[in-house]
Design a protein around this nucleic acid. Structure first.
Lengths: 158, 158
DNA sequence: TTTAGATAGTTGCAAGTGAGACTATCTCGC
DNA sequence: GCGAGATAGTCTCACTTGCAACTATCTAAA
């Protein structure tokens, strides 16, 4: 007779842990800065890469649907946190970048989030944290989760 | 100047991986059996614990909102996969259990899901899988994710 | 016994999100 | 240069889900 203990079932555990950790972090940027998760992902991508990039690129990187990114971009534009310039080489797409105001928010937010990450991982030793990250990486690789530069068709086809 | 690389940020990675793994698994029970994730969680909880249990208990175990569980229970009842009997000791709650039909589905589904889990983890050695599970457990413990028997108020307050 | 507060479960409502249609633009082959 | 197909981004629709109100029931204390 087959049995499956949810608490020992890795897919369930990953899903639950991912949701929980996200919720713990989101309070940081939601309550304090009024950002939701897609908005934060746009900010994070633009803040990390100094050059302006397209909405499509962000969607691929963060593995978020393009319509969700589109809405997040609209909202961030309205709040003056990002700006968008036409790409004269390809007028279908827009180049997005943080505004000064966006940079200020980013600089304030990042240390808070990194601190939260450290808190969550503080139950592990330095060696364990390193090992955990390595194992996560192996699983991500095998699921093809990290190659941001693939065409979107492949991403969605997965 | 603070920087945060999303691809190295564990909360983001956990969230993305959890969503991805869930999506990979859900095709198994969605396409083949028409179950959605909350329904599958109800089935999994009832199938693992042989005794009948309440919707509230399932909500706590699976960390799913009680209204979501309520809807899943309604749907499973309609499909004849579970049954529900009044608890004479406390007439507010109902005892839920798999029907014969539900058992058959469960027995069919579990091996498939376990096989999928193995596939996902096949990129790790046996030793690494063990270590990964151990580290996951430490993080879960520190986030208080595994004590299913706490009162719901605490669960929601987290 | 009565009453206030807690708890189980259901339901209406609003917010968020993915799918897919749509427009505008680009690319490539003819 | 032209037309077919690809791509960027927006928008509508349908679906899901969390929240909160609600009913019914239980518990405990006055």
């Amino acid at each position: 007779m087959a049995k499956l203990d949810l608490f020992k079932f890795v897919p369930f555990r990953l899903n639950r842990l991912g949701a929980e950790v996200s919720a713990a972090l989101s309070s940081e940027y939601r309550a304090r800065y009024g950002l939701d998760i897609p908005e934060w992902r746009v900010m994070a991508t633009l803040g990390f890469r100094n050059e302006a990039c397209s909405a499509q690129y962000i969607a691929q990187c963060t593995r978020t649907h393009k319509s969700t990114i589109s809405r997040a971009v609209t909202s961030l534009l309205e709040h003056g946190l990002i700006e968008r310039v036409e790409n004269t080489e390809d007028r279908r797409e827009f180049r997005l970048a943080l505004t000064d105001k966006g940079h200020v928010l980013y600089e304030e937010l990042i240390p808070r989030l990194l601190r939260r990450e450290q808190e969550i991982l503080s139950c592990l030793t330095a060696q364990e944290r390193k090992e955990f990250a390595r194992l996560l990486g192996k699983i991500e690789d095998s699921l093809d989760l990290v190659q941001a530069s693939r065409p979107m068709s492949e991403v969605e086809a997965y």
